[in-house]
């Protein structure tokens, strides 16, 4: 019970569900997201949905390393910042469209992640965590001091001249559509991963690193590939954030807090599950937005306090997160009433 995380409990039910049904469900959800994203007119709701989609993408990407791989990565802000800065710098210095800059940022982040993954192979648990924290600090310090390229602590602004070719839109819905696309990409990748060899290798690594390591090269490769994919997705999110907010600086895209948020949302939603991080993101973004709106900020820290408590409780008592709880409730209901089938 203790060492089994939720994914091993969910895996069989996923397999039990026919592939066709899962795909159909997936298509329906994605379709609904796109329709909502393009039809929504209230700008505030569009913004809220954008924040949720971005947060879900980040949490989902983090989950690949932290949830499936069980590695305590606390430095994903570095990749977020690298994505944001790479596309913005390429646009400002070489007039390269952020669409391509975004890919360049993702590639750069993936390469760095592979490098870090390779040199930290021997490090476990907290040591790995501290290395990733220190790595992010180094990136932040470099960005802060490389004034001519990054604008130092003053940061960079992205001009707002609506032109779809330059990833700049006159309406918010277009940004939202990009965010939905990113989220769909992230979660489709995790869903596929969970069902393929990569996912099983990661799972094995997490459950028993020593045994998996004795399998050798494959496990190492799985670890590096997952780290690279995760970093690339987070970097894409970084560019999206930069284009949407129109300004970036070391505090807004490279702070420790961002790394923590990704891990927090992923864990509260359900570590190592496919859609858990999305649930975590929905819960985090809506609750903070609602509390801010209700209390006009009087009790802003209360939100963090509640969230921290919830986080601890989830870690101690319900490591399946919100998703795990939902499944448990459903299972219990099913058992009691003896009907319905369990599929996620």
């Amino acid at each position: 019970m203790n060492t089994n995380t939720i994914s091993t409990r969910i895996q069989p039910s996923l397999q039990a569900a026919s592939l066709g049904r899962t795909v159909t469900l997936w298509v329906i959800i994605v379709g609904a997201l796109y329709i909502t994203a393009s039809r929504l007119t209230d700008e505030h709701l569009v913004d809220l949905m954008f924040q949720i989609m971005l947060a879900a993408s980040l949490a989902g990407a983090w989950n690949i390393v932290g949830g499936f791989g069980g590695q305590i990565a606390l430095g994903h802000a570095a990749f977020f910042g690298i994505g944001a800065y790479t596309s913005t710098i390429l646009f400002q210095h070489y007039h390269l469209t952020p669409w391509i800059g975004m890919l360049a940022g993702a590639l750069f982040a993936a390469l760095l992640a592979t490098l870090i993954g390779a040199v930290t192979l021997r490090l476990r648990g907290p040591f790995f965590a501290m290395t990733t924290v220190a790595f992010t600090e180094l990136v932040r310090i470099i960005v802060k001091n490389w004034d001519s390229l990054t604008g130092g602590t003053r940061g960079l602004w992205i001009p707002w001249e609506p032109n779809p070719w330059n990833f700049s839109f006159s309406d918010r819905n277009s940004y939202l559509l990009v965010a939905v696309t990113l989220a769909v990409l992230v979660f489709s990748t995790t869903a596929i991963m969970a069902k393929t060899k990569l996912g099983f290798l990661l799972n094995a690594l997490r459950e028993d690193a020593d045994a998996a390591r004795s399998v050798g090269v494959k496990a190492t490769r799985a670890r590096l590939i997952s780290f690279a994919i995760s970093a690339a997705f987070v970097a894409l999110g970084g560019t999206l954030y930069a284009q949407y907010s129109l300004s970036i600086d070391p505090t807004s895209v490279l702070s420790f807090d961002i790394s923590i948020q990704m891990a927090l949302m992923s864990a509260v939603g359900g570590l190592g599950t496919v859609i858990g991080p999305a649930l975590g993101a929905i819960a985090a973004v809506t609750s903070s937005s609602l509390l801010r709106g209700w209390f006009g900020g009087e009790l802003g820290a209360l939100h963090l306090l509640l969230y921290g408590v919830l986080f601890i409780l989830v870690m101690l008592y319900a490591r399946g997160g919100l998703l795990g709880m939902a499944i448990n409730v459903k299972k219990r209901l099913t058992r009691r009433f003896g009907q319905g089938q369990s599929d996620v």
Partner: peptide, 14 residues
């Protein structure tokens, strides 16, 4: 797992 230990202490810090 380590992950839980690290996260619980992170939660305490938050």
């Amino acid at each position: 797992p380590h992950l839980v230990q690290v996260f619980v202490t992170l939660g305490i810090s938050v």
